[in-house]
């Protein structure tokens, strides 16, 4: 499956990926309105930074996803065809088992009234995830594993 790969040597720590991810998953989908009015937004990609090293990390969509195994309500599932791991908001009960087992720490609590786990869905309705599309330095690439180093 095509996954997002990180080129940490080109990550400039601007955090535009986080911003565009929030907008994409906002109600209004409009950047200024979303940031000024929707105060419950959580980015599903996070830039980790130490010194001049930085990279943006999001769900790896693991082949044997521990979050799927750990989910007590069947909300977390891996699509057999696409390989994408998603969380069904309607089924999620907010037990946070997924958060505890995720080896990458990329599952977040969605802010707001209901407790829901929030994670990267690879922007399935877009040609390319918005974090990849909007990275100004091509530090994120969507590729098959074998193609990830081709540029």
């Amino acid at each position: 499956m095509k996954k997002i790969y990180i080129k940490e040597e080109y990550c400039i720590g601007c955090r535009l990926c986080e911003i565009y991810c929030q907008v994409k998953h906002s109600k209004s989908k409009k950047i200024i309105k979303a940031f000024k009015t929707e105060l419950d937004m959580v980015p599903m990609v996070t830039v980790e930074e130490i010194g001049h090293h930085s990279f943006a990390v999001q769900c790896r969509h693991c082949p044997d996803a521990p979050c799927v195994d750990a989910c007590i309500s069947g909300a977390m599932s891996k699509n057999e065809k696409s390989g994408v791991v998603t969380c069904d908001d309607q089924k999620c009960v907010g037990c946070w088992s997924c958060i505890m087992v995720c080896p990458y720490g990329v599952i977040k609590r969605k802010l707001g009234e209901k407790k829901i786990a929030s994670k990267c869905d690879l922007c399935q309705d877009e040609l390319e995830p918005v974090c990849v599309k909007n990275c100004p330095n091509e530090a994120l690439v969507l590729a098959e594993e074998e193609e990830k180093d081709e540029s």
Binding site: K7, Y10, I12, H52, N137, E138, A139, S151
Partner: peptide, 18 residues
């Protein structure tokens, strides 16, 4: 712009692929 600098925080702003 990561061009005229040797600061690693700045130089990575120029991705040589781009």
């Amino acid at each position: 712009w990561g061009i005229a600098t040797q600061d690693p925080y700045l130089t990575k702003r120029l991705n040589p692929n781009i």
